[in-house]
Design a binder for these strands. Structure first.
Lengths: 213, 213
DNA sequence: TGGCTTCGTGAACATCGTTCACACAAACAG
DNA sequence: CTGTTTGTGTGAACGATGTTCACGAAGCCA
């Protein structure tokens, strides 16, 4: 009947994710986790060294799920024979927006946590998961017939995705009305439309002509 | 000799900004402020109701300074007779990047704080300051000869600025090497170039044609 | 001088994250 | 079967932090 060590860890992570989703990072308390999991405070520290480790583990799961849903969305469009770049990028962005909306509390915590990590040691599995997201976008861009070499396409993918990310996070700074959701989506539509049109007309190289020094 | 109430408030804010800049939001401690300001903990709570209010006041000053530097950069270009939209937007983005680099610890705190405020009551002076930044960008876009009505131009300004913001924040998630600064700037150049080219070719309306439902 | 107000003070909560000495149970050795 | 070792759960305890509040000093006015 007693739960395995790994089962208990997952139970703790599930509880932690719920707590983060409800009240953000400051709602992730060791005593609350212990109480809801039916164990003592010390046991939590037996399973995880830090609360930071709990937080990181939750974030990993979130990033992983986000990548999976993004890939699933792309696979769906592939099955439907949709090859239009703009359609596919919009679908990818839509998956991202839905994901953020589905995790109102925990997704901001992912970003805040990421930032706190800035001074920490070396690279991480974090970056790997983010790169996976970039690669999906880069793959979509490859289907489009822009005159982009691999390096420039990767740069465009990172730029586009960071921009979508900025729109979403900026949008959710203000009070999250249903208005905000519409505003976010209109911005994304504008961005993607302009981005694709700009790439089609060689806008990626424009700065070399207009900026001298 | 003794400082005025308002002078002491500003001294506290200066100390708070330094603390935020050094160690982020979790480094803003009431006792540290009191010690460095030469007053007691209770006096801090006499000047400000909350530590949140201190944090908000610091953020206000930062946003205000950011807007001022942005306006100054625009005025400089005006004086030089530079009317090219792409140049001016790049200059605006450069001002933003420099500002973030100049406040490595406190600027992330602005964003993290903004998010915590999500559940709080009504609109704020925060939004007013952010809108001021949007207005600057919108003013620059107005100089360009795109076929945009006021509403669409405002949307484009918010989209462009949120995108720049996303690029900068995403870039500073990873370890802040000098490489990152170059990557950020390349993304910004690509974004602005593609954005302007896309607007010139009516990309802002493209989504209406390709997206049916 | 005697009251009234204002403001600074720091001790005193409550609540965190985190640690640690102890206890209990299971596995293992003789 | 008994003693030992090992692992693990426990919750009291510690230090730090945000915040409050009763107290007192210091000015001000009549």
């Amino acid at each position: 009947m007693a739960l395995d060590k790994e089962e208990m860890s997952e139970k703790v992570l599930a509880i932690a994710e719920a707590l983060l989703n409800e009240g953000g990072a400051e709602n992730l308390k060791a005593r609350t986790i212990a109480e809801q999991a039916g164990i003592s405070v010390g046991s939590v520290y037996n399973l995880f060294t830090d609360l930071d480790e709990v937080h990181r583990a939750v974030n990993m799961r979130l990033l992983d799920r986000l990548g999976a849903t993004g890939l699933a969305a792309m696979a769906d469009l592939e099955r439907q024979g949709v090859t239009d770049v703009q359609h596919r990028i919009l679908a990818m962005a839509a998956a991202y927006v839905r994901f953020v909306e589905a995790h109102p509390g925990s997704w901001p915590a992912v970003l805040a946590f990421n930032r706190r990590r800035a001074t920490r040691p070396g690279p991480d599995a974090y970056d790997a998961l983010l790169d996976a997201l970039f690669d999906i976008v880069a793959g979509v861009l490859k289907a489009g017939d822009f005159g982009l070499d691999d390096e420039r396409r990767a740069l465009a993918a990172r730029t586009l995705w960071s921009s979508v990310h900025g729109i979403v996070t900026s949008g959710y700074v203000a009070n999250s009305n249903s208005r905000q959701a519409e505003e976010i989506w209109r911005q994304i539509e504008l961005l993607v439309g302009v981005f694709v049109k700009g790439l089609e007309h060689g806008g990626a190289f424009a700065h070399a002509e207009t900026k001298s020094e």
